[in-house]
Amino acid sequence: MKILFFASTLALCILLNFTQTDENLLNESTVDISLLKGTWKIDLSPEDTTDANFAKMVITEVGKNSLNGYFYRDGVKIREGRINTQRGIIYAALVSGDNSGTYHTSFFYKEGLLYGSTHSIDKDFLAVWIGTKEIE
């Protein structure tokens, strides 16, 4: 009987600990979205370390659910920039475009890097990229 009581108490303590950890992960208010602000060097072909296929993203403003700035080679204005911080992770999506068409981009922030993809229907590609923040 004592062993059963001890085992059930231990299980309850472990469950409460995991539940509290999970609640902390879900706490969106602890996420610092201002980390996105700044100039980002986007490596458009991260699998090839010998090329110079880079773009630039400048995030000038972040709001609770939005971001503004410029993306790609000629400073194309970001449209429809959105931020989501579910599970304590910063996710973002935006629309940009140039004379060749519209680009749909999404990314997430992890340990100082942006991991993203850009999809162009008009140019028929999906680019996977990694962004590093430039020191300002």
Rank of each mutant, 00 (worst) to 15 (best):
K2V: 10
I3D: 06
I3R: 04
L4V: 06
F5K: 14
F5M: 14
S8T: 12
T9D: 01
L10K: 07
A11N: 02
I14G: 04
L15G: 15
L16W: 04
N17Q: 10
F18V: 01
F18A: 08
T19K: 10
T19Q: 11
D22T: 07
E23S: 13
N24S: 13
L25I: 15
N27E: 07
E28N: 08
V31P: 02
D32A: 02
I33P: 01
I33S: 10
I33M: 05
I33Q: 11
I33N: 13
I33Y: 00
L35V: 14
L36E: 03
K37C: 09
K37W: 03
G38L: 04
K41F: 02
D43M: 00
D43K: 02
E47M: 09
D48M: 01
D48V: 02
T49K: 07
D51H: 09
A52L: 09
N53K: 14
A55M: 06
K56C: 07
M57C: 08
V58K: 08
I59Q: 12
I59N: 11
E61Y: 10
E61L: 08
G63C: 10
K64A: 14
N65P: 05
L67H: 10
N68I: 00
G69R: 12
F71D: 14
R73D: 12
D74S: 09
K77D: 00
I78L: 01
I78G: 10
E80S: 15
G81A: 06
G81E: 05
G81D: 05
R82S: 14
I83V: 12
I83Y: 04
T85Q: 13
R87M: 11
L94I: 07
S96L: 01
D98N: 15
G101D: 01
Y103C: 05
T105H: 10
S106G: 12
F107Y: 13
E111Q: 11
E111V: 13
L113C: 05
L114W: 04
Y115D: 00
G116S: 05
H119D: 07
I121C: 00
F125W: 08
L126V: 12
L126R: 04
V128G: 00
G131F: 02
T132G: 11
T132R: 11
T132V: 09
